[in-house]
Design a protein around this nucleic acid. Structure first.
Lengths: 339, 339
DNA sequence: ATGAAAGCGCTAACAA
DNA sequence: TTGTTAGCGCTTTCAT
């Protein structure tokens, strides 16, 4: 890249020193308005662009923030990313985005690549698979700030942005119970991840509060791939328990489940009431409309962006703000309505 | 960043020259296996990481590819991005992703930022708003390859990856006509973009082929924001024409439209048949299932990634491959079924 | 308010 | 096969 025009060219041209050019371009206080104006004008005129490599090499920082997410192609994730992107780009940072595809090794490789790319900070939502976290060690030892969102890891000095998943799981389950469900199934994601584990805890706790017995048959762990919806359908249809309520930890999967159950002549919500999670737009498309827990993805992204920028600009430190918990909200729609 | 450990440290340590270290680390052929192994081992042991700024500054290339998309949070876009990311990361490139939010100025700013970041190539899907394209001039003059996908711009030496939108529009419309629709409305996106313009052409052409008169009342231009679905509903309900078929250039909008029309006691497909565009998963969630045109987003992303990598690695040149047209496909579902 | 000069860490031409 | 050396373009300390 870079078809020339350096500060030296400008310097020669205007008969000043490269230092003056550099200072002018960076709005250094100790430069006269006049020369500054002259130089900036010339820079524009000649299509000067600062060479970030040189600047970064010199300054030892990149103005770039790395992001690792499990996958790009989910509504929830892309909403978060949209939030992050909006904030950091406004602050003059670039985003390097990579996806782990839920695979631990890919996550490790991405972390390494981003480290080499000299990111100033790393934002992560963990892959389901990941059980070893040593790929973050180098970030810590080099004091590159880490921030986790949604699928988080508790690390000293690495803030997390989450919702209270236990509470949300409790709310979702309680709602089903209030709607007179007594045989409730919880379909959850990979329990290696705290999001799902916490929601399961909330699920159990709500059952307990209401004096409903729990056993392993009330939980089904899946990977939320809609293509494998049959796993859930088979489980439900063949179970000895006649489920009358299902709490699915993912709206999209829940919507697909409703579709499939309907094909099996099961009426939603009459036979089985279903509540999802995330408030994906699909919930308002499906018939019946899906009850869910609102999970503010965009806001989470904005917050993640704001936190990391604030840190990088030295406005906050991460010792104090260690965890931001966003408010969730139950949204009751037709899929859990009493008939 | 970068808590030290440079090739000089390694060089001193192993009593070789920095050049030897560099060559070893880059797998240069003219280095003995033995020293190479020694050096690589030491590098690992001491947690060496190449400083990309220095390398890039020296090599004048960044191993980074920039992407500008209208928005991150649509199923179609995130699918494309997932495809691009998969390919380029496999080839050792980073992706810098930014969104224009459909705003021309934001697109210009992004293009500039990415240029400054020294991207080796730029992949773009245009904002609806954009009418002036001068922000790409510098890329052209600096010979940084540009590639457009989906919402494309015809520029010499900048390949485009698209589907045959005219043909697809023709197919969608013909399908409605075959299903006995005669008063057909086309809801299209911003006609500044060729995607929508071509589909409209296809629409008109299909009408003409079938001897159906066309006038401006048969077209409604919207921005496909589901929150503004009322615009379309009002238009349809109040129109003097009693529409019996609608071709919507966006599945998500179509799904929302179906929902709203149903609230107005309009039966889909009995009263009005509807076909969408893109084959978004929402089409299989909505009742009735939405007929659509399959638009292979992931494949488009993969192809975009492959093309740009092939170019950067010198395996192809862009004079010859100027446009890749992907195959689209009509998917007939319940929303256009005869009753 | 401005200039001179050193050097960030790496690669590659040239030499040995 | 390995070493020497000269920058890549920028920022910044120290001088002026």
């Amino acid at each position: 890249m870079s078809k020339k025009v350096t500060i030296y060219d400008l310097a020669t041209l205007l008969k000043v020193s490269p230092a003056t050019v550099s200072r002018s371009l960076n709005n250094h206080p100790s430069i006269s308005k006049k020369t500054k104006k002259r130089i900036v004008a010339a820079a524009n005129e000649h299509g000067y662009h600062t060479n970030k490599f040189a600047a970064n090499l010199r300054k030892q920082k990149s103005n770039t923030i790395g992001v690792i997410v499990p996958r790009l192609d989910s509504y929830f994730m892309s909403t978060i990313l949209a939030g992050i992107e909006q904030i950091v780009s406004r602050a003059g940072y670039n985003l390097i985005i990579s996806q782990s595809l839920e695979v631990e090794n890919k996550e490790k490789k991405n972390a390494e690549t981003l480290l080499n790319s000299g990111v100033d900070a790393l934002l992560v939502s963990l892959a389901n698979e990941t059980t070893d976290f040593s790929h973050f060690d180098k970030y810590i030892s080099r004091k590159i700030p880490l921030l986790f969102f949604d699928r988080v890891l508790d690390l000293p000095n690495s803030p997390t942005i989450i919702i209270d998943n236990r509470d949300a799981g409790y709310d979702a389950t309680s709602h089903l119970i209030q709607q007179n469900c007594t045989n409730i199934l919880h379909i959850c994601g990979n329990l290696k991840r705290k999001v799902y584990k916490k929601r399961l805890e909330g699920f159990k706790s709500a059952l307990e509060t209401n004096g409903i017995a729990f056993n392993q048959q009330h939980v089904l762990e899946v990977d939320f791939d809609p293509k494998k919806i049959e796993v859930a359908v088979t489980y439900i249809v063949n179970s000895k328990i006649k489920f009358d309520g299902i709490f699915v930890s993912n709206d999209n999967y829940a919507a697909n489940l409703i579709k499939e159950l309907q094909k099996h002549q099961i009426n939603i919500p009459k036979d089985i009431k279903i509540i999802g999670f995330n408030n994906d737009p699909v919930g308002e498309i499906i018939s019946p409309n899906l009850s869910t827990i609102e999970y503010p993805g965009f806001k989470m992204g904005v917050l993640a962006g704001e936190s990391i920028i604030a840190y990088l600009e030295g406005n906050i430190n991460f010792q104090s703000t260690n965890s931001i918990v966003l408010r969730h909200e139950l949204i009751a729609r037709a899929s859990t309505q009493n008939t």
